[in-house]
Design a protein around this nucleic acid. Structure first.
Lengths: 213, 213
DNA sequence: GTCTATATAAGGATAGAC
DNA sequence: GTCTATCCTTATATAGAC
């Protein structure tokens, strides 16, 4: 099974025999990611999560110290999954790959992780603005690490002349990630494949919506 | 005072002498928009809103039947403000204005309303995915009305040859609005003027991030 | 119109049995 | 590890005085 598809397990001890505890913990995390993603942080109750994971509310406390601790773990997994996906897909490119090739690959990997693989990254994107400030502060460094991958990519584009000189790369990065992340709000699986969204997004980011030069 | 700046009042009886009731109602709405925007729907309590508006929780029920009714009004005002802003700015253009001019004006109007004028539209964008499903269903037609303005704009672009033929305009519209709407998540007033964000966004949407042809 | 007082329900979290 | 039972707090909403 694809490493990324395994969700929470992907960040755990892969290949080892899992204890019952670890398996339950993973079921709880999977349920939490899905429900947080759907209803938001505050509207999701520990009871909802426990029900979906097949145990009682009080039992959650054996695995997590609090609701905040649980959501923090979901956020961490969500960011890690997309970070690893983009990083590894970029690493597979030949060393002399162009900026356009790199950007295309990064866009596809980001959208695949966000829209089709698991609920963790979409939960992350959708609720990061709703969680208590101290939770957000704790996961922030990890998010910045991800941002730096994109920042580096844009810098490479600028150096190779593929990106407008004089542009504010930080602002550009936020616009690009906004284009991609907002897809969690409107994308409905089944109508269009994720790849179609990724191709249209790549086209717009690289050349705009106008007629190609 | 600018009509748009007046927020809730802009949708009320402008120019007439306001009753005390209407003035209080507006204070409540202003407070609600700000706090919903900051903390999300579920995490915002009626007590928070009442405090900010300078009255007791129970008194809110004189003006609104429930929390749902209150948030629905905030959402309606938020969508109406951006819809009217974009519509009126487009109407001010000369009849023979190009697609590029029209798109630029629409982007600026959208971002101005979203990022600097009031809290209503940003609250709308940030919490629409968190409110109870029946509230969302009731305000949906109004949101679609706004979407149609953009859809018409893109169709005009296609007809005049400014937009790639063969493109899925619905998908394109979602990508563009995503680029703009996601700015509510990261934009911090003070660093960059909204106009700088609007110009960079316009440039990317029209011609991509690359070197201009 | 706004207040105080209160009904009612639900959520996060803990204690202790099994 | 998971359960039942329960504590404590807070939320929406209503009743009725002023």
């Amino acid at each position: 099974m694809d490493i990324v598809k395994r969700g929470a397990a992907a960040l755990g001890a892969i290949g080892t025999v899992q204890k019952k505890s670890a398996a339950t913990r993973e079921r709880v995390l999977d349920a939490a990611a899905r429900i947080f993603r759907e209803h938001g942080y505050a509207a999701t109750t520990l009871n909802d999560i426990a029900d979906a994971a097949g145990l009682k509310t009080a039992s959650l406390y054996y695995h997590f110290g609090s609701k905040e601790e649980l959501v923090e773990e979901v956020l961490r997994i969500g960011t890690t999954l997309v970070l690893e996906a983009v990083k590894s897909r970029l690493a597979q490119l030949p060393a002399d790959a162009s900026f356009r090739d790199r950007l295309k690959v990064a866009v596809h990997a980001h959208l695949d992780t966000l829209l089709s693989l698991t609920d963790y990254t979409s939960a992350d994107i959708r609720i990061i603005g709703q969680v208590p400030a101290d939770v957000r502060a704790r996961v922030w460094p990890l998010r910045e690490e991800y941002g730096e991958i994109w920042q580096g990519l844009l810098q490479f584009g600028k150096q190779t002349g593929a990106v407008r000189t004089g542009a504010d790369l930080g602002l550009m990065r936020m616009l690009i990630l906004g284009t991609l992340n907002y897809a969690t709000e409107w994308y409905k699986p089944g109508r269009k494949p994720v790849s179609a969204v990724a191709e249209e997004a790549t086209a717009m980011i690289l050349g705009g919506i106008g007629t190609a030069p």
